[in-house]
Design a binder for these strands. Structure first.
Lengths: 236, 236
DNA sequence: GTCTATATAACGATAGAC
DNA sequence: GTCTATCGTTATATAGAC
């Protein structure tokens, strides 16, 4: 178990860092020349978009709402995106990019399957904790995307799920885990990982920290997957 | 394990039945006098609302969209609800009413905790399968409700979750289950139950039937909760 | 770079004919 | 009980001043 604080310090996911990534990825669409100005305003725009969308949804948010919340005029906003729909796609793409980058980087290739599974669960939870508004947005607003973008979103979901399924499959082959359906197990695990950022009010209310949640979930998967015929106990 | 077909036949959840319930619950708001006419058109209106909302969200659906899809004029629609927002609340309340009624009716009071847990899991999954558009709608459109209605939605979620937690608590006290956190376990179970209707495309693609899903989930919970010190194996 | 002012279209809701 | 026609409002997006 790697702690949340250690994870937080090792990945750099401040607002400025995220918005710099956002700017670089959409440099040709954004009409502001000076990087510093662009990033400073992008922080305001994206924070406001995620906040308003979180409470009433992206579709219900008018650009006037956004203008008010971000303290920028309508005209200024349209220097950062050319349509409201494009803004939606830009935000979604950023979430996917960072998710893939971090998740892949946190899993040690030489670790055992049970260790890898724990690392993946922790990375997923800790990242969603750090970027909760982004994850919530990407989940809830997926249906408002264009058909092609929706297809990409589904592929993304299946890709990260496949990462978990691969670890489980490997664990079964190597005798660490008992013989369960890896795909169905990974699907249910994904659902439990997502619940953390879909219902933050629930866990906050009960004083469950993200580390508590990670510990419980890893324990549950361990218990469920443990092979009673394994020659050596691989955990505890 | 009660089969899906048996469940389907025992609860009556046809469109007409549901819309009759809907009409009775909102009789004073709906200006159409003849029940038969009202139910016939409510089927069209509610089917259309759920279909459009499912693809692009309730907020993005205009009343003109609804008018086109339901083959009714704008004027006619407003004889069935007095505002778009009220329509949203009416739909939400119906979902909660039926959910509570069916879930309570399917659990046998004299069954053992493991049996009760299996019955509750099956009832939840089978009902969500029969009323998939309603469940999906209630989950995704919760944020568009008024503050008071949102509070009711959260209470509803915690109520059904409490039902599962109660069974688990009882099972621990009676020695059927090992000593795990009942609330956290119930929360994760709820997340897995909801995944069935939140991502139907995933399970359809993999040819996982609702009975397969129920069997797997019950097996998982059995395995996770099984008390190694129990005097008698309560299942298999 | 950011602002105000405005063009144009679509929205929710209603009135009155049939 | 359902329709068409239309009200007033609000939306997205842009043009031009500063």
């Amino acid at each position: 178990m790697k702690g949340f604080q250690i994870f937080k310090d090792s990945v750099n996911l401040s607002s400025e860092q995220i918005c710099t990534d956002f700017l670089n990825a959409n440099r040709e669409q954004i009409r502001i020349k000076k990087d510093e100005t662009a990033v400073r305003n992008l922080v305001k725009i994206l924070d406001a978009t995620l906040a308003i969308s979180s409470s009433k949804g992206f579709q219900a948010m008018s650009v006037r709402d956004l203008s008010r919340e971000a303290n920028l005029s309508m005209g200024a906003l349209y220097s950062y995106f050319k349509s409201k729909e494009e803004l939606l796609e830009m935000i979604r793409n950023l979430g996917c990019r960072i998710m893939n980058r971090v998740l892949a980087g946190e899993i040690q290739p030489d670790a055992s399957p049970p260790e890898k599974l724990a690392q993946a669960i922790e990375a997923h939870l800790y990242m969603s904790e750090l970027m909760m508004p982004w994850f919530y947005f990407n989940y809830m607003e997926a249906k408002n995307l264009s058909k092609e973008e929706q297809k990409k979103a589904i592929e993304m979901e299946l890709h990260t799920e496949g990462l978990f399924a691969g670890i489980i499959k490997d664990g079964i082959n190597k005798g660490f885990f008992r013989d369960v359906d890896p795909n169905l197990t990974a699907a249910l695990l994904k659902a439990m990982l997502q619940d953390w950022y879909l219902k933050p009010w629930k866990y906050q209310k009960r004083s469950v920290s993200v580390e508590d949640y990670a510990r419980f979930l890893i324990g549950m998967m361990d218990h469920f997957l443990k092979n009673p015929h394994a020659r050596d106990g691989h955990n505890e």
